[in-house]
Write a protein that binds this DNA or RNA. Structure first.
Lengths: 247, 247
DNA sequence: CGGAAGTTTGACGTGTGTCAATACGAGTGG
DNA sequence: CCACTCGTATTGACACACGTCAAACTTCCG
């Protein structure tokens, strides 16, 4: 299911050009290059890390969308958060021993596969990078905090608005938007599982929001029409994103 | 609201005796001692970190219970997770700039107040400790993942069972249990806010579980009566806790 | 003793889940 | 180009878990 690719050199990583990412020194980039074993491709819908997998590999997401989830034994699934380029995969599992959650690809995906056993070298010799890794972990925790508020205390209408504006902002920061449009490779089932709602109710809520003129969503194509109303409905006014490490 | 205390030396930190915590070298402990500015006490019910506070101080919880939460502008509150001795407070905020969440004391609490500006020194000169800090962050994320599954996909009955057994296990690892009993300084309102439920429904669910004989809860005194049934109901079978850093 | 905070219970309303049927879009093969 | 199929989206009818309101009760504590 995973295919090895001819890899882009880290120095030329196209993400380095994006304004949200922090710059690295030449030596740091050289180390990252050595940290990376290979680039691998995974097709849409496939599993990247399985729930319960012991010592799963350490990846960073180079291109494409993915998501983290947990399932109960009877099949109920909760999506924990969505992963976009620049996010780490399997780091929590690396720290804790094994993966308490699964990771699936939402689109075709390109991953940078890193050497698990060099992470310690990173902490020892590249404290800046170690700091960045911690930053990424803390940042992801913040995202999940917000998700928890949605699922726990927001109505379906508010939750859906929150999720969409959140994804829009993240995608925008990565240059994945065109004007106020965006390719959103997220099915209604995914949204339902992320928000703790049923598929049917998610659908009805999406239609309701569109009838209100807040956005348009047709065949994975999302158009943000009334950002202010979305933010007010979601009660979500995040300050602009800080510069973040790419690793 | 915060009172300075005569501090226990870190070498004599009583938590070091607990089996879950990893040992540190003498030099590391000496550094932690220098990292720590003072110990402060905060009374039950008081705020430790305010929502939105910029550059909040960096604490670790030495004794007592606390919790992290976020509130929507109309007052709805979601508790993100509970904090027990050994947990860091304000580290996410330290990384991201300001506190996206508040922290309140559940009981009278003793905090170790650390020097924000020495964290970088920690990363630079004590990679082992930096690694530990990341471990703590990753671990907390795992706890929130579980909370998200509860709030999103578990029924009220299951959620309450999950929360109680989770807290019981954590408290037990810290030696806070006596037999199968435990002082649980968590009101029903707190549980409701942690689980995304209403106060009334939380109460009815608690009574129902007690009538089923799973546990007893009287005046903050919790007695676990049928652990197997609790774990099955919550669909929660965690492997024993790994050794964790105390910082 | 008195008042505040937390807990408990009952009655009733509603947001969201479940079930079931239909429609639609993207592929596939004839 | 037309069936055919399969995943996804849509809609309506109905059920129920959980929320809201309101009132009593209990514990705590000054």
């Amino acid at each position: 299911m995973a295919e090895k690719l001819r890899a882009v050199p880290c120095v030329k990583c196209p993400m380095r050009r994006l304004p949200i990412f922090k710059p690295n020194t030449a030596e740091e980039i050289a180390f990252i290059e050595r940290l990376r074993i290979e680039q691998v491709g995974v097709p849409a819908g496939a599993s990247i890390v399985r729930e319960g997998q012991v010592k799963p590999p350490l990846y960073s997401l180079f291109a494409g969308w993915a998501f983290r989830y947990k399932t109960l034994t009877d099949g109920r699934r909760q999506i924990l958060n969505f992963l976009l380029p620049g996010d780490l995969i399997g780091f929590q599992a690396h720290m804790l021993g094994d993966a308490a959650h699964g990771v699936d690809a939402l689109t075709d995906v390109v991953l940078c596969h890193h050497a698990r056993d060099k992470i310690w070298t990173l902490y020892k010799n590249y404290p800046e990078l170690a700091f960045d890794v911690t930053w990424l972990t803390a940042h992801e925790e913040g995202v999940i905090d917000d998700a928890l508020v949605s699922v726990g205390r927001r109505s379906a209408l508010e939750s859906v608005a929150m999720l969409l504006i959140h994804l829009y902002k993240r995608a925008h920061a990565l240059g994945l938007t065109e004007g106020n449009e965006l390719d959103l490779p997220v099915s209604q089932q995914h949204m339902a599982d992320a928000l703790g709602l049923s598929l049917v109710h998610t659908n009805k809520t999406l239609r309701r929001l569109q009838k209100l003129g807040l956005f348009k969503l047709d065949r994975q194509r999302f158009t943000l029409l009334n950002r202010g109303a979305m933010e007010r409905l979601a009660d979500y006014f995040e300050k602009p994103l800080d510069a973040r490490p790419l690793l």
